[in-house]
Nucleic acid binder design. Structure first.
Length: 296
RNA sequence: GGAGGGGUAGCGAAGAGGCUAAACGCGGCAGACUGUAAAUCUGCUCCCAUCGGGUUCGGCGGUUCGAAACCGUCCCCCUCCA
């Protein structure tokens, strides 16, 4: 095998998980999760996390590593995954990263450096009463260089810039691993959206409400509960919306999310794209396998 | 038959003489994003085009320098009374 690493990317609900199992099976791989929300224990149905009995004995890493109230960041992800890749490689296995969290995945593929201070909520609290315009003024005055490279319409980014000491902007970011294959899975937009809508209903049938209710009852309100499929249900439990309204929002947000994912993967990664054949997913799997063999 | 309400861009919905090719939301498309990323943010979305131009607000006809907005008339929809 000439690849150090295979990465499978694509919008939510295209079939990444299924492909990953097949490839792991065929090329003796171990799977590393690349979905930020699947780090969390208890977020199973809503994140479409693979079930224990579906794993086919294949080792899965970075699933269920956090409790819902805990937080991580790309930096942790990057260090852990770099380590995991080493381990897996040492065992003579192929690391296969599967997921949809663009930034996290890019931080593995490329040599992203994170020299700045870690994020912390104090600043957010400190500037609570400030309008974004005011924050922008402060930033421009105190760190004009940094202001140039930040999206000034985006309060969150302005806040982060405010807590950075220097600009850690990298002019050029090099690939970190020499031989990586990034497989992009795609599907006609219309069909993708249809799949997403259907999958939301499947999740409901599998017990999504119960899963989310449990988080709600525990009073957990964190980054994890901001996940699609979760945050929309909280207002329903509070009696502020109907179930129907909440489900419409879940579908909508999932579709919008899928679109954002596609934008990232298309423009930030050098992926080899495969169009998924819905009627015959095995055919898609075959195509990918053949491609890998040919390139190996 | 009588009394009201209404017909606005793909949909929902503002607008009530010039600032309007027409707010806003949805839907659609494109994009940004190096420590919250399933998050956060931006742009486009009548037609042709680079400036710019051409057609719009149920139909037709008026009033007016100027109308989606005012008047007349016709068509359609809804509610109530018969």
């Amino acid at each position: 095998m000439m690849f150090d690493l295979i990465m499978i990317v694509g919008p939510t609900a295209v079939g990444k998980t299924r492909l990953s199992l097949e490839l792991a099976q065929a090329f003796s791989g171990e799977i590393i999760n690349g979905d930020a929300m699947q780090f969390y224990r208890g977020l199973d149905i809503g994140t479409a996390k693979i079930k224990e009995e579906e794993k086919q004995g294949i080792k899965h890493h970075l699933l269920d590593m956090l409790d819902p109230h805990e937080e991580t960041s790309v930096v942790d992800y990057q260090t852990i995954v770099r380590e995991k890749i080493k381990e897996i490689t040492k065992k003579n296995k192929l690391p296969i990263i599967v997921g949809g969290s663009g930034l996290y995945l890019s931080s593995i593929l490329f040599d992203y450096k994170f020299p700045g201070p870690s994020r912390n909520d104090d600043l957010t609290k400190k500037y609570e009463g400030f309008t974004t315009e005011m924050l922008v003024e402060i930033l421009k005055k105190t760190k004009p260089e940094l202001a140039k490279n930040t999206d000034l319409a985006n309060r969150r980014r302005v806040l982060r810039a405010l807590e950075k000491e220097n600009d850690d902007f990298q002019e050029e970011i090099n690939p970190y691993y020499p031989n990586v294959l990034v497989i992009g899975l795609d599907l006609e937009r219309e069909k993708l959206y249809e799949r997403i809508d259907n999958r939301v209903m499947d999740m409901v049938n599998e017990g999504l409400l119960k899963e989310v209710k449990s988080l709600y009852d525990q009073g957990i309100f964190s980054q994890a509960t901001m996940a699609i499929g979760y945050k929309e249900l909280f207002p329903y439990f509070r009696g502020e919306t109907t179930l129907e309204e909440a489900l419409v929002l879940i579908k909508r947000n999932s579709r919008r999310y899928a679109k954002r994912q596609l934008t990232w993967f298309r423009n930030r990664m050098n992926a080899v794209w495969f169009k998924v054949d819905l009627e015959n997913f095995d055919k898609t799997i075959q195509e990918v396998k053949e491609y890998i063999k040919k390139r190996s």
